[in-house]
């Protein structure tokens, strides 16, 4: 008679806390099993490294995005920012080519240019959001349009192409690696591990969660809210720069179509991973799992004939909605 009322106990209930932790991992395992059953090549070394390398760009950005969202923010500009940085990097390297020759110096210059541009772009977002107190959504919606437009303008509506000789010199950044593992995968792993440590084991990570949870409480607790918020955007900008450095050698060009929808993929990965969109709780490993889930879905659709690859976006959308439903608090309404 009196058993059904039990489910309404507040927040402390444990059972589905476990689901929140395990949900993304279970989904990932299910995808791997499905993939392996549908196509024998799925688990081949070549396919796995291919998926990982393609996921690395979004993955690196998603790690930065995890901090931004955990601290109660959002950044819609990362895709455009990546395109703009790619264009800038290509222009800087092409321009420096006659002076510096085609060697390491030009490559290093390109890398530095991308990192500086990323830092600056992130700082501008952060400055407008924290010091000028404009909503993150509005600021990054604005910069999203600005960077997309700038790269179109720089390319004069077409494509910015890296000098052909430089392209060969730069290729190892994407195709090369250590012990058979390519640089994007290694970088993604290193960024993810550092991100996890920073989130879980440093004051910065704790402050991000506190600010996302209630920034007034954080301010009253002597936390420099503006500075921490700014740093999350600067960090994300830097990581966009890092991702772009390895993206440029892959195609050797940048255009208005570069990095389209990256911001949504990164945000989706973060949410699938269990970070709360309204802030206050975030986990970097979850975002990594989220990126892998999104990457595997596309890969499986490409490898099998059962479902059209054109439905990739639809399936990803379903996964995102499911993830949020599974992670929802038990009580509805409040």
């Amino acid at each position: 008679m009196s058993t059904t009322t039990e489910q309404r106990a507040p927040g402390r209930a444990r059972p589905w806390m476990d689901l929140r932790v395990l949900g993304p991992i279970i989904a990932l395992i299910v995808l791997i099993v499905v993939g392996a059953l549908m196509n024998p090549n799925f688990l081949s070394y070549a396919n796995i490294t291919n998926v990982l390398a393609r996921s690395a760009f979004i993955g690196i950005i998603a790690v930065g995005m995890t901090f931004v969202i955990t601290a109660g923010g959002l950044d819609l500009s990362v895709g455009s920012m990546a395109a703009f940085i790619a264009g800038l990097m290509i222009m800087v390297m092409n321009a420096a080519l006659p002076g510096l020759g085609g060697g390491l110096a030009v490559i290093l210059l390109g890398i530095v240019a991308a990192l500086v541009a990323g830092l600056a772009a992130g700082w501008i977002n952060g400055f407008l959001i924290t010091t000028m107190r404009i909503e993150a959504f509005i600021v990054t919606l604005g910069t999203m349009g600005i960077y997309r437009s700038l790269v179109t303008w720089l390319a004069d509506g077409g494509t910015l192409s890296l000098d052909f000789g430089l392209r060969t010199a730069l290729q190892p950044l994407y195709y090369g690696g250590l012990f058979g593992v390519s640089w994007p995968i290694i970088t993604f792993a290193v960024v993810a591990i550092i991100g996890e440590i920073v989130m879980r084991r440093t004051a910065f990570g704790r402050y991000c969660a506190a600010i996302g949870s209630n920034d007034t409480v954080a301010r009253y607790s002597s936390v420099n809210v503006g500075r921490i918020r700014l740093l999350t955007y600067v960090g994300l900008g830097l990581l966009v720069g890092v991702a772009t450095i390895m993206y440029v050698p892959r195609l050797g060009s940048a255009s208005a179509a570069t990095g389209v929808l990256w911001e949504l993929e990164a945000i989706a990965a973060v949410i699938i991973g269990g970070t709360m969109l309204k802030g206050g709780f975030g986990r970097v490993w979850g975002s990594v799992v989220g990126v892998l889930i999104l990457g595997l879905i596309g890969n499986i659709l490409n490898l099998t004939d059962a479902v059209s690859p054109y439905l990739n976006g639809a399936i990803q959308g379903v996964i995102i909605v499911l993830a949020v439903i599974l992670q929802r608090e038990g009580k509805a309404g409040t």
Partner: peptide, 9 residues
């Protein structure tokens, strides 16, 4: 509740 403590932590 509003300024002192993070109730969800």
């Amino acid at each position: 509740k509003g300024r002192g403590l993070l109730l969800n932590m």
